[in-house]
């Protein structure tokens, strides 16, 4: 205490050794608990049904999971800011319909369909973001409204009949293989790397965490709130579009309901992966694990012969339970 009151000695020369804290066993456990849950789930299902661990089934699982993972990453970005984007499912529909339209109703090249779809996703995210940042609607209200705008646009573009039979180069994105690995998995890997880098190593990514952790302090620290928020929704819209493209390419057709079922898993996956709905915490790796858990649960149900009609019931329960767990974890901290 004396030392500190003495001015000369508080000069900044003294060499403080930084402590590198070793995470406690509890922390390590909780960090890997999700991975552990995933492995346990895999082991459990493979015990009940030997087909599960077959390479063909696993590749199938991953391929199925691809759009889900990409869309969940979009939701992760929004969760980090403390918001929610209920429109993601319908953005998936709308953007895949846009790509379907370009592919089948115009003479434009197949890659233009991708650009158009991603552009449409970005635009939708831009509008949602403006409603939240400028009009200051709660994110749930704004994005829920945009859900129906997106759905309506999908209907309007499609008219009476669905689009199908896309060119092979486009279908390659959903069904093709590169070096023996399905294209969707490549796409997911690339996007996961980009998003991981973006969240960890860019100032914009860091600002997203800051806004979610404490919007008041973020503003007082000179972060431009509106601009950052809007970019979060734009990115999430673009990711939903990429999810839609993979889906359309795999199914070789688009219809007006294809995205709706992605919303609930997209909420549950990040939360199960440790991204808090309250914002400021979470990341890419957790969301991928969370998405895989979601997919494997449904895949496992199929393998175990449970009627897929019950799937929504399970998803609903999983959403409620995972968000509840998130609430409990936050209270404990």
């Amino acid at each position: 205490m004396n030392k500190k009151n003495n001015l000369a000695e508080t000069e900044m020369t003294e060499d403080v050794q930084l402590i590198h804290e070793k995470p406690s066993i509890g922390k390590i456990l909780s960090r890997f608990s999700r991975l552990g849950a995933l492995l346990l789930l895999c082991i459990g299902i493979s015990l009940l049904n030997q087909n599960f661990l077959k390479v063909s089934n696993l590749i199938n699982v991953f391929r199925q999971a691809a759009p889900q993972i990409v869309i969940s990453l979009g939701m992760t970005i929004v969760f980090l800011t403390g918001g929610i984007d209920l429109s993601l499912g319908s953005v998936v529909t709308m953007t895949s319909v846009v790509s379907g339209y370009v592919l089948t109703q115009t003479e434009l090249p197949w890659w233009f369909a991708i650009i158009a779809a991603i552009g449409a996703g970005a635009l939708s995210g831009f509008v949602t973001g403006q409603l939240i940042a400028i009009v200051k609607l709660p994110s749930a209200v704004a994005s829920y409204g945009m859900l129906w705008v997106g759905r309506g646009l999908a209907f309007a573009i499609m008219g009476a009949s669905p689009f199908f039979s896309f060119p092979d180069s486009f279908r390659y994105l959903g069904r093709g293989y590169l070096l023996g690995i399905p294209m969707p998995i490549w796409i997911v890997a690339i996007i996961a790397l980009i998003m991981g880098w973006f969240l960890k190593y860019t100032t914009l990514g860091r600002s997203l965490y800051a806004i979610g952790a404490n919007p008041h302090a973020a503003r007082a620290s000179g972060i431009k709130l509106s601009r950052t928020l809007v970019s979060a929704y734009i990115i999430s819209g673009m990711l939903a579009a990429i999810g839609g493209i993979i889906l359309a390419a795999r199914l070789n057709a688009v219809d007006q309901d294809m995205g709706a079922s992605f919303l609930l898993p997209a909420i549950a996956s990040p939360v199960m992966g440790g991204t808090s709905m309250a914002g400021g915490q979470g990341g890419v790796a957790g969301t991928i694990i969370g998405s895989l858990i979601m997919i494997i649960v449904t895949n496992g149900m199929n393998l175990l012969g449970i009627n897929s009609l019950w799937q929504q019931l399970v998803t609903g329960i999983v959403v409620v339970l995972s968000v509840w767990l998130d609430v409990i974890m936050r209270k404990r901290n």
Binding site: T203, R206, S207, Y209, A210, A213, N214, H216, A217, A218, A220, S221, G222, I223, G280, Q281, N333
Partner: peptide, 20 residues
Amino acid sequence: RDGLFPILSMEKNLVMVCLR
């Protein structure tokens, strides 16, 4: 309210203003 990001690490808090 206006200064800290309570759930973020010390390092992240310390560089928040000077990021740009």
